[in-house]
């Protein structure tokens, strides 16, 4: 039982990360019907940017621990800056790579997205080299024990941050003017224009928010695993994409649910079957969902147009 609970916590922590990335996929798909394959790489870029910002602040991978409010402040500064930078990069990608192709056949922006993905990977490889790089572990990491289950601060951080971001996003989407404009544009772009919504600006904001969340995920992933690599986003991105599809692509609550489920499935597979089989299981879910229930767990099946 303790093992099961332990793995459940691991799964939730890992799943929180997938969920944060999945939100970007699902928000962008919801509004422009594009699977933004570069999104996973924006996530990795988030980790890289955190390392760079930490270096500027004088924090390196030497293992120095910064305790107390100072550490918390640095963490906050790093995550906010990385989120903003990733957000801006997301906006630039949309502006220069996708916008002109918005009314082109679907395959064109999809291939462009794969191109942007390679571009970002290339930039990161040239920047930090082709091998694993370590992410400074500057926060203390006390472990809390509940019965037989151990949670360390990092896991707690991952879970808390990802849930906070999701609650904030959900509030934003349903209660702010821009959030409503995003939902309206996702449902019917022309009708949204006829409400006086500037759809281009709204789409840009969607990329900003999705990419900023990927930036946050980049930070917590770095804190959690302690390393990153320029190809990290490829697989994490595909798994987050699976999470988005599992929940129902375009559905925000679905992306969160899918993220946590994929994380838990992965942890349980690693524990009870084998580490080697996690990808097989996860991507089998992708195939099964696409074949059996393409609208996903929470996907609505309302007619889109009359």
């Amino acid at each position: 039982m303790a093992i099961f609970l332990q793995q459940l916590i691991n799964g939730i922590a890992q799943g929180g990360m997938y969920a944060l990335i999945a939100l970007g996929y699902t928000m962008v798909y919801g509004i422009v019907e594009l699977i933004n394959f570069a999104h996973g790489d924006v996530f990795t870029l988030g980790s890289f940017l955190c390392i760079a910002i930490l270096a500027l602040l004088g924090v390196s991978a030497s293992g120095q621990i910064i305790a107390g409010w100072q550490g918390a402040l640095i963490a906050l500064l790093v995550v906010v800056l990385a989120a903003l930078l990733c957000g801006v990069i997301g906006v630039l990608i949309e502006r220069f790579a996708y916008r002109r192709l918005r009314n082109a056949p679907r395959l064109a922006p999809l291939i462009t997205a794969i191109g942007v993905s390679f571009l970002l990977q290339g930039v990161m490889r040239n920047w930090k080299g082709p091998s694993e790089i370590s992410f400074p572990q500057f926060l203390p990491n006390p472990t809390f024990a509940f019965g037989g289950v151990h949670i360390d601060l990092r896991e707690l951080l991952v879970v808390i941050v990802s849930i906070l971001m999701m609650v904030a996003l959900q509030f934003f989407i349903y209660n702010t003017k821009l959030g409503k404009a995003m939902r309206a544009s996702a449902q019917d772009r022309d009708a949204a224009s006829l409400m006086g919504i500037n759809v281009n600006t709204t789409i840009a904001w969607t990329f900003f928010i999705g990419s900023a969340l990927a930036g946050v995920a980049g930070f917590i992933s770095g804190m959690y695993f302690g390393t990153t690599m320029f190809t990290n986003g490829y697989q994490a991105g595909l798994k987050a994409f699976t999470a988005a599809v599992l929940g129902g692509i375009g559905n925000i609550a679905g992306a969160m649910l899918g993220g946590f489920l994929i994380g838990i499935v992965e942890a349980m597979t690693a524990q009870y079957i084998s580490d080697q089989w996690t990808n097989v299981v996860v991507f089998s879910i992708l195939v099964l969902i696409l074949v059996l229930r393409p609208s996903g767990l929470l996907g609505e099946q309302l007619p889109e147009k009359v």
Binding site: K180, D188, A192, L194, G196, K305
Partner: peptide, 26 residues
Amino acid sequence: IVQAPEGRRIFQRMTVLENLELGAYA
């Protein structure tokens, strides 16, 4: 210059209130 388009084009997954609010968006 405000249009009620062909096929109504209301926001199907939003409530009546939200649809009306969006009408006043601009």
